[in-house]
Design a protein around this nucleic acid. Structure first.
Lengths: 282, 282
DNA sequence: TTAATTAATGAAATAAAATTTCATTTTTTC
DNA sequence: GAAAAAATGAAATTTTATTTCATTAATTAA
């Protein structure tokens, strides 16, 4: 919890002198984290014990502990907030806003993920005979990326962003196959059908989507990636990035499960690309 | 600057006793921020002045100041790049690490971007007769995503992840065309050639890559996305996500430049998808 | 309104924590 | 292997934070 917000919220509960302390802190928190209790007391024109009592009222152990909390609230990166792009923003401004809201979304997405479900997904993926990744539109990119990653693991993996190919593939799936369906909204009709078809054919269906959507009802495992998509510009932005991070998590889980020998193989795959690249000078 | 990284980096410069302090801190930084200098000294089996000297060597004023820096590095949301996935990490742990390093990379990438270059790129893109996005491997996904976005703008846009198609397309390019080449390493031979070909044919070449790479030398505009790619697992992870965020920035810049009427069109594109989706109940 | 009660406040004392000084030990250099 | 330099910790000192307790201000009940 951000202590600056807490101070603001509890301003009413404070005594007159304590409020003086609060005001000094709110006015220049960055100075306060480098001040001693005596300096702050002087600044607020009150005594040192009052500062101490103020700190305790905010559920900290004392002044040094309070400063710690304050420092953390002030740490850079903490306010990863969703700031909306404005008509008149300069390149600098909209760049900052987009990066920040992307980071905020990743933070949110991480919180919505369930470690247990990730574990189960990794289980299922490592034991799969065949893995298919399906997505449409922006989610097609995520499926594409997943294929690129899992292909390196030397397991049978396919990706389709074509409705008919997805259907045919789903119909041909069988027990032991894993189908990963990706959709932010979870409402794309054809994808919901594909998930349903795959299940009917005994494949395990992992859904990368939000909770409570039509798609989620057709899945064996739901990996819920909740982000507040900024729809101002009518384009999927944060959602697909959070989904990609999740693909990284699954791929990482896969390699960890497979052990260290397996990771040596990955190195070989990477090394095989060397001749296609210019050498590094350093 | 993250103090934990700094400790890791300067581990070699430290004396034997100071290194003991460093190890205790790195092992459980969250405990240390609540410890007194005496407690930490005892924990590390060294004397209090040694802790003090350790703090000064890290350019902090003393122990309390050091704790402040440490607390900030540990604050929620603060990028902590150096957390590599470990062999024995639980799903919970590696998920957190991957999301955190992804956020850290975005932070880094944002800093490496130059608003002026973004502005110029948006200029060029809005005036282009034709836009092509080229990438290979993980960067192909980024090109794919860019096509998906720019396609909505109703401008002629293509994407190729096939070397021959890229070459043919580059050779056929002309003045007024914009070619966006995407490569994290900037060393992929065929892509460097493609960039060169496009330039010879008077197209404007925008490079999404790092500074000082062979590819960057062939570009009219370089959008440098520097991230410290975690290559432990030999897979591109953070780099492509930073590149995607940059695509979002360019797409956003594009829509802002085109004005509000244009954004109404985007809404229509989105609405056209409605019939393919299940209705929202809410 | 006023006396009684309760809460708030700060001066001074105490306690805790951090830093400095300096002698001793260890390491390095020649 | 001796001299010089660097590292280290014990003890003293200084700084900082906390507690105690007397005083003052605010609130309540008659």
């Amino acid at each position: 919890m951000n202590i600056l917000e807490k101070i603001t919220n509890e301003l009413d509960m404070l005594s007159k002198s304590e409020r003086k302390v609060a005001e000094v802190i709110l006015a220049s928190p960055n100075t306060v984290i480098h001040s001693s209790i005596a300096a702050l007391a002087k600044q607020a024109n009150i005594s040192e014990p009052t500062v101490n009592r103020f700190c305790r009222r905010l559920d900290t152990k004392g002044y040094p502990d309070f400063k710690l909390h304050l420092a953390q609230s002030l740490a850079n990166g903490t306010p990863y907030v969703n700031r909306h792009v404005d008509e008149n923003d300069s390149a600098d401004e909209y760049t900052a806003k987009i990066f920040e809201s992307t980071m905020a979304s990743l933070e949110l997405a991480r919180k919505s993920l369930n470690a247990n479900d990730i574990n189960r997904s990794v289980d299922v993926l490592t034991q799969a005979n065949k893995i298919s990744f399906f997505g449409l539109g922006a989610s097609a990119i995520v499926a594409h990326d997943a294929q690129n990653k899992f292909f390196r693991f030397n397991v049978p993996v396919v990706y389709f962003d074509d409705i008919l190919m997805q259907r045919m593939s789903a119909i041909n799936s069988r027990q032991g196959d894993v189908v990963v369906v990706i959709s932010h909204t979870g409402r794309t009709k054809s994808l919901v059908e594909v998930a349903s078809l795959a299940r009917e054919n005994d494949a395990t269906v992992i859904g990368i989507t939000s909770m409570g959507t039509p798609l989620s009802k057709e899945c064996s495992i739901i990996l819920s990636v909740d982000v507040t998509e900024d729809t101002d510009l009518y384009m999927p932005m944060s959602s697909r990035i959070a989904q990609l991070a999740l693909i990284d998590v699954l791929a990482t889980g896969f390699t960890l499960r497979r052990g260290s020998k397996f990771r040596d193989n990955l190195k070989k795959v990477k090394d095989s690309l060397r001749s296609s690249r210019f050498d590094r000078k350093d």
